[in-house]
Amino acid sequence: MRTVSKKVCLLGDFAVGNTSFVRRFVYDLFDDKYISTIGVKVSRKTLAVPRADSAVIELTMMLWDLAGSEDFSQIRGSYMRGAAGAILVCDLTRPKTLLSLESYRADLRQVNPEAVVVVAANKSDSPEQRLLLHQVEEGIASLGTAYFITSARTGENVEKMFRHLGRVLVKS
């Protein structure tokens, strides 16, 4: 089986839940403290991705979980270099986090114009949800990318999102 590695960035405002994705669904070696000290932590997600020609590729996504706080806005660009894809994460309980996605995507495009992007509208399990589906759709429409309503807590659509991203990465 052919093995391919790709760098993928996890981007989103503070506390949208991207670190929860890492904790529960991927292989994690390093401490979360790196996110607050140097602004990033790398984890790994390995998937077997079928291709159109029926060959299966073992895809290793090196997930760079970037700190969402303002303190690291200067350095974020350099961490995005060489990324083949990104997961933009927003929080369904905080509409403002949806609005920030556009700026993350712009930063990414600046260093990697070809990078593949998917959106994860997270915390679908929360009773405090304030964003309705049509609002999410409207907010993401300008990004022109696939989106998934996810819950890092229950696992809803998380694997599905990774699989979708994996397929697109292998194709691209």
Binding site: L29, F30, G39, V40, V42, R44, M62, I75, R81
Partner: peptide, 15 residues
């Protein structure tokens, strides 16, 4: 875990 070490090393270098 050498791939993770390689990536974190790159992150530290960038930092």
């Amino acid at each position: 875990d050498s791939d993770l070490v390689g990536s974190m090393l790159t992150a530290i270098r960038e930092f």
